[in-house]
Simulated assay, not measured.
Amino acid sequence: MRTTHDELLDAEDAMVFDDQPLDTAALTHTICWRVAVWSRLHTLKNSYNMILKLFIAFSFLISASYGQISVVDFCVADYSVANGPAGYSCKNASKVITDDFIFTGLGVKGNTSNFFKVAVNGAFDLTLPGLNGLGLSLFRLDIDVGGVVPIHTHRVSEVIIVMEGTIIAGFIGSDNTAYFKTLNKGDVMVFPQSLLHFQVNVGNIPALAFVSLNSPNPGFQFISASLFANNLPSSIVEKITLIDKDQVKKLKSIFGGTN
């Protein structure tokens, strides 16, 4: 089937190569027209090649993402094998029981008789083997009046929902901007992955909250404990924190650090 493009080319050929005297203006027009057509076709070819390359690249990405989909229903943690970067190995399916998927510890208040007046009790891969490989965990957070969850971080993101009481919760961005707000019953806040965050009970009753993290083993690093519960020499701690010697020794005595 002939296209409009073919017909236009024939028309130009007829106009130039007829037996009539050479029309310079027509010839110039034809040359310009052909250059424009060639340029357009060249552009379309480049665009087609680019689209083809993008299509191939996205095809590989989609294939890779599908490769991450589990081919088993679950992978209950096998505690007889050491934990690795990808989690625990899978327990033999013939030995899996219903209780591997159940945790009953979130209905009871934790022991808050400590320095921070806080208790954290959670369902994660060590307490709920069925969470292994599923990318989530759940914790109960009890904070007595005046209590605080000191500034800390995880490897993953966190969502908190307040069930009782009033707390101030917040996190600090990598540009040192602080994002914090008073949360009441029913309020939800998210703490992005790896950023320092905290919670403080500012109400007149004990606070209760539940937090969920997108890992069965999210990891916890409390900054205060990291600085003052270790064996790093006090002289070094003084230099890296700008805290005087007496305060460093006091904090080390509180958190159990040495040297």
Score class of each variant (00 low, 15 high):
T166N: 07
V16Y: 05
A209W: 03
A25G: 08
S80Y: 09
G105Q: 00
I102V: 14
G87W: 07
N217E: 05
V81Q: 10
A57T: 06
L106D: 04
N114H: 03
G257P: 05
T182M: 06
N176I: 09
F220Q: 10
F60H: 12
G173D: 14
D99V: 12
A123H: 01
K250F: 15
A229T: 07
G135E: 05
G173W: 01
T43I: 07
Q199N: 12
N83S: 09
V118K: 00
N217L: 12
G219K: 05
I51C: 04
V188P: 00
V118R: 03
I223Y: 10
L213E: 05
F171V: 01
R40L: 12
P85Y: 02
F222V: 06
L251Y: 07
K95Q: 10
K249Q: 12
G84F: 11
D244R: 11
E238T: 07
F198Y: 09
T177V: 15
F60A: 11
S137C: 13
Q247F: 12
W33K: 12
T258I: 02
K91E: 01
H5F: 15
P233M: 13
F58Y: 10
S65N: 13
H197I: 03
P85L: 06
F115C: 07
I97K: 15
K239H: 05
L44G: 04
R40E: 15
L27V: 14
C75P: 06
N121M: 11
I31A: 14
K117F: 14
I240H: 01
T166G: 01
L9W: 01
K181G: 05
W38Y: 15
I56E: 11
A11C: 10
